[in-house]
Amino acid sequence: MTTTPERTMDKVAGRLINGSVRRSYEPAVAIDWDAPLVDGKYFLPKEVVSLYGTPYWEELTEEQRIELSRQEMANILSVGLWFENILNRGLLLQLLREDPTTPFAHYVLTEMGDECRHMTMFGKVIDRMGARPFRMGLADRVAAALLPHFLHGSLLWVGALIGEEIFDAQQRRIMTDPELQPVVAQLMRIHVTEEARHIKFAREGVVHRLQHASRLERFLVANLQGLGGPTMRRCLVHRGIYHRAGLDVERAYREAMANPHHQEMARVGFASLAAFLEDNGLMTRFSRRLWRRSGFLA
């Protein structure tokens, strides 16, 4: 008997549900929220901070560097909150078109539960760091409200991967850094463990959706995914971070945008996803150009 893509996804979903039962976390008890922050420890490893390796970085005091890492981590977690909010709404709309009795639907609900706990965790860590969240502007709020209605089929899964894999690759590299604040290291260990299941599910969703996707869907996804490059760059490096850190905003922004070390970190984070998109025929000249101009491809 032929195995349909839907049945294959149900099998994957069933395995991931079992994995969720065996290894999931409740951040309210998995993180020691009462532990004090450690003087002299960073909120991001030095090499991940946007100004690392620039002339301006060499002029900063150790206290200024740590404060910049605090503000950049607060921004990363804020962006994570926005993304997971959009993803959950996209998944809810997807469920309206699914059979609620299937393992596929049940794992979608399981993942949404994970993402709700992650959003809670991100908010609590921002507060625990003594920082303030970064807020969306009006245009971004309007875009975020509309976007879930356009995330259908393989575009939903590719969008999920853009939001998950780039952060995941960085987290895996830095979560064991001994100079990292313990509360941040605990957050990253939880997030890496649970995001691994989400990434597996999204990748399987892309592969199986493409088995019966139309040429038009393939064309649209392969080109539209390139918009992730400039979006990620704009969200992750912006003037508000340097303003809150008390730096010369224009100089800091200029040096960060031109920083070859920071661009190399971006390329490392995107490398695995870029290879996956290439292998599945979802990279075009247009999308490559967007990712390259944003610093994520050499």
Rank of each mutant, 00 (worst) to 15 (best):
L93G: 04
L155F: 13
M121S: 04
S154A: 08
F150T: 12
M121D: 04
L109Y: 15
R117N: 06
M112K: 03
V142P: 08
G123I: 03
E111V: 03
R128K: 15
V158K: 10
T110Y: 02
G123A: 12
A145V: 01
R97N: 12
I126H: 08
G113A: 03
L147P: 09
R89Y: 15
M129F: 11
V108N: 03
M136L: 14
M129K: 03
G137Y: 06
R135A: 05
A105F: 09
V158R: 10
P148K: 07
F134W: 10
T120C: 06
I126N: 04
F150N: 04
F150D: 05
H118V: 02
T110N: 14
F150Q: 06
L151M: 14
H106N: 06
T101F: 09
I126Q: 10
L93H: 11
D140E: 13
M121L: 03
L92H: 05
V142G: 02
L92A: 08
L91V: 07
F150V: 06
A139N: 15
F104M: 05
L95S: 04
G137K: 06
D114N: 14
G153H: 12
L91W: 09
H149E: 01
V142F: 11
F150L: 09
W157E: 12
D140V: 00
A160G: 15
D127T: 00
H152W: 06
G90Q: 07
L147K: 10
H152F: 14
L109C: 07
A139R: 13
V108S: 03
F104T: 11
G113W: 05
K124Y: 15
G113D: 07
I126G: 07
N88E: 09
A145D: 13
D127I: 08
F104K: 07
D99G: 03
N88A: 11
A131Q: 13
T102M: 13
G130D: 07
V158L: 04
T120H: 09
G159Q: 08
I126C: 12
G113H: 02
F104R: 15
E111Y: 09
D114Y: 03
V142W: 12
G113C: 08
V125D: 00
G159D: 07
L93T: 02
L95E: 10
E111L: 05
M129G: 05
V108G: 01
M121G: 03
R89E: 14
G137A: 11
T101I: 06
M129T: 15
Q94M: 12
H152V: 09
A160Q: 11
H149F: 13
K124V: 02
M136D: 09
R132H: 13
F134M: 07
M119R: 08
N88L: 02
L92R: 05
T101C: 03
I126S: 01
V142K: 02
P103K: 00
L151H: 12
A105M: 10
Y107G: 03
L155K: 13
T120F: 15
R141A: 04
G153Q: 12
P100Q: 03
D99C: 01
H149R: 06
G123D: 09
G123R: 01
V108I: 04
M119Y: 03
A144I: 10
C116I: 01
A143N: 10
A131W: 11
H106M: 00
R128C: 00
V108K: 03
A145K: 13
V125H: 06
L146F: 13
W157V: 01
M136W: 05
R97Q: 09
L95H: 11
K124G: 00
M136T: 14
